[in-house]
Amino acid sequence: MQVLIFSWEYPPRKIGQLAEYVEVLSKKLVEKGIKTYVITYHDFLTGLVENKSGVMIVRVANPVRNHTSVLTWILTLNQEIERAAANIIHQHKEKISLINVYDWHFIPAAVTLKSAFGIPILYSVESLEDQRSMKANNPYNMAIKSIEWLGFYEADKICVKTNAMKNAIKRAYNVPSKKIEVLGSISSSDIEGLRKVFSTITRGKSKR
């Protein structure tokens, strides 16, 4: 099994707790025999490819330096994430089994790759724009929510850490209950749970 992980933070770039979480998680996935690539952003390690405990890390930067918001920065950065992912997909004979995207940032890249290659998506949700923005509904927040919606719509499965989050997603986006998996933090049983989710997705895909 080969998996691409998209995350906008990964050590040494830490914004919140997601960076370290993805680092530990990807290491444990490799231990389970899953070939794991992490595609992430880093401004001054542009284009760097690193192999850390078997995890392949690819870092990209945004060629557009001037922006009007985080949104335009994210939307343009997605092209480089997409390019890095496409390079991996084209260079490997064996098909990439799935894309695991963390939060909304790189959903645009994931959905194009899905429609071009038929690669399924697992969307892992750390937080929702509704919660981050105190339910603000100006066009800027609504645009981010619409990207989250696209992610929920296109994802084959959604992963969350708590039942509270599962309920929040069900409420805000009308996502069917059985599409959402609740997995705890990164205990070994959670990793085994995640591996099982991966298998469900890829098995489901091969049936289609």
């Binding site: 939307l75 997605n78 429609s115 645009a143 619409s146 990207i147």
Partner: peptide, 28 residues
């Protein structure tokens, strides 16, 4: 016009997101 947008330039990038997703499916 699927996505609400704060301004024209952001609309362009969001439109491009939808366009390439659709175009990729068409090309495939």
């Amino acid at each position: 016009y699927k996505n609400p947008s704060p301004d024209f330039a952001t609309w362009v990038y969001l439109m491009n997101m939808n366009m390439q997703k659709e175009a990729a499916a068409i090309a495939r």
